[in-house]
């Protein structure tokens, strides 16, 4: 197999050296690589780069209830960063991110570990992985709403606990609380942790584990000293997904807290519905810088291009 591939490569290489037609073809394909990248660059330029720069510009504008005034004022930033509410909201959002990250990492790792190392046939692995993936392809809002009949005052959990005689009255904090927000986020985002960890675990060379076993390591030592360090890139990619999704979330916080908790994106959403775009833009810039710094920090640990 390797021999034929090598042969094929030598023949092409020598052919390339000889014919000027091949050189011309290389030029064309080199040009076509640029052309092939154009659509992606244009779309991301128009709908990602341009809007983000627009936000950066608008964050320095002045506004009143009716319209925006192009300007260069720092009031939007001063109001945002000078407000106690903003700091509390940022702190609350970071708290959600930390809790949800820890829970999804724990659940995601063990689910991926089970799929990669305990399910023996590839078919079964794929079937079970798909079982985990399917909910991710359905509506987030519907998945959130589906907790209402489960956690509500007269929901399944409360009814079951009362019927069992464990509690005298319904637990109020199950729904419309921080607990509900975290639960729904874990429900929505764990898959983003499972997939990259599963991917890295599947690429671990099984002979490494056998070697560790032969050298006398027990199951726990293999897990701690071999598998966990090798799973780090997957965990890092999952972390990028989960942290950025939680930092950007407003609908889960709004629906599941019943309007009692705040997040940065929800604060932006409220400013947007009041047409205070420059204020929302200043918030967006702060949030974006925070998120990008966090992601850059994680990218120092892992080279994404190598992990794909």
């Amino acid at each position: 197999m390797t021999a034929t591939a090598q042969d094929g490569a030598t023949i092409t290489a020598s052919g390339r050296r000889r014919s000027p037609a091949r050189a011309a073809l290389d030029l064309v394909t080199g040009l076509s690589a640029h052309l092939q990248a154009v659509p992606l660059a244009v779309i991301l330029g128009a709908f990602l780069l341009a809007p983000v720069m627009m936000i950066a510009v608008v964050s320095f504008w002045d506004y009143d209830f009716a319209r925006l005034y192009p300007d260069l004022v720092l009031t939007n930033y001063a109001e945002t960063l000078g407000s106690r509410v903003t700091w509390r909201t940022y702190f609350n959002t970071l708290r959600y991110a930390a809790i949800v990250w820890a829970l999804t990492l724990f659940i995601g790792f063990w689910v991926a570990y089970f799929l990669a190392f305990h399910v023996r046939t590839t078919t079964m692995q794929m079937v079970l992985f798909l079982v985990c993936t399917v909910p991710f392809l359905t509506s987030n809002i519907i998945r959130m709403i589906s907790w209402i009949p489960v956690l509500g005052r007269n929901g399944l959990v409360n009814t079951a606990l009362i019927d069992a005689g464990l509690i005298p009255a319904p637990i109020e904090w199950l729904l419309y609380s921080d607990f509900a927000v975290v639960l729904a986020m874990v429900h929505l985002y764990t898959l983003f942790m499972v997939t990259p960890i599963f991917n890295t675990l599947m690429r671990i060379d099984r002979s490494l584990i056998e070697a560790a076993r032969d050298a006398g390591a027990n199951g726990r030592q293999v897990l701690w000293n071999v598998i966990l360090p090798l799973a780090k890139p997957g965990m890092a990619i999952g972390t990028i997904f989960v942290v950025t999704l939680v930092m950007a979330d407003f609908i889960t916080v709004q629906v599941m807290s019943g309007g009692q908790s705040a997040s940065v994106a929800l604060m932006m959403r409220n400013q947007m519905s009041l047409l205070q775009y420059p204020a929302a833009a200043a918030n967006a810039v702060v949030l974006l810088v925070l998120v990008l710094v966090m992601v850059a920090g994680i990218l120092r640990i892992v080279d994404i291009r190598k992990e794909l």
Binding site: A37, L40, A41, L44, F47, L48, L49, A50, P51, V52, M54, I55, V58, I240, F241, T244, M247, A248, F250, A265, M268, R269, M272, Y277, A280, A281, A284, L287, L288, V291, L292, V295, I304, R305
Partner: peptide
């Protein structure tokens, strides 16, 4: 520009969705 384009794609994943919404709306 292969590397910048690759990182722009990654950025597209991590930029909070509401910022994209706001940016395109205002633009």
């Amino acid at each position: 520009g292969a590397t910048p384009l690759f990182y722009l794609s990654i950025a597209s994943l991590v930029v909070p969705s509401i910022i994209i919404s706001l940016g395109i709306g205002v633009m």
